[in-house]
Design a protein around this nucleic acid. Structure first.
Length: 139
DNA sequence: ATTCTTACA
DNA sequence: TGTAAGCA
């Protein structure tokens, strides 16, 4: 059958371990068929895995991904699904933009401190024994 | 050989 | 998520 697979096949296809797939199931993101103890995955499970991987790439939490998947599963029109996704995308974008600003500010300050340290070091190397006036008696 | 559950890192 | 134990 080309419409149902074992956990090993699915793991290989998505480039994850079987542990990861079971982990997502534990979190409620997927619910494969059960034949006795064995898990049997269908096309809809692949779709979910695809959604999970995409969400992970974009930096969404498993909880957020689950929320989106639940809608994908519930609303056939896919409207609410797209609406939530769009909302999440905007939130994520804003978050990333904010982080980028923080990183740029940190890098700018690092540049300033770096130069400051270099100058201080050069000064100390130029005039070895003349730090401050009032304590150069030790000699 | 593989998968499954459970538990710990 | 990785790793490992003990089953089926």
């Amino acid at each position: 059958m080309t419409e149902q697979w074992g956990i090993a096949e699915l793991a290989a296809e998505f480039g994850v371990t079987t542990r990861t797939i079971r982990f997502y199931e534990d979190k409620g993101l997927i619910s494969p068929e059960r034949r006795g103890q064995r898990r049997v995955y269908h096309p809809r499970d692949k779709v979910r895995l695809q959604l999970i991987m995409r969400g992970k790439r974009l930096g969404f939490s498993l909880d957020e991904i689950q929320a989106m998947i639940d809608l994908y599963d519930a609303d056939p029109s896919e409207v609410s699904q797209l609406q939530l996704f769009l909302d999440k995308l905007r939130q994520r974008k804003a978050q990333l933009l904010g982080q980028r600003d923080d990183i740029e500010m940190a890098l700018d300050e690092i540049d300033r401190r770096e130069k400051q340290c270099e100058n201080l070091l050069n000064d100390k190397q130029s005039e070895p024994r003349q730090p401050k006036a009032g304590q150069q008696a030790s000699g």
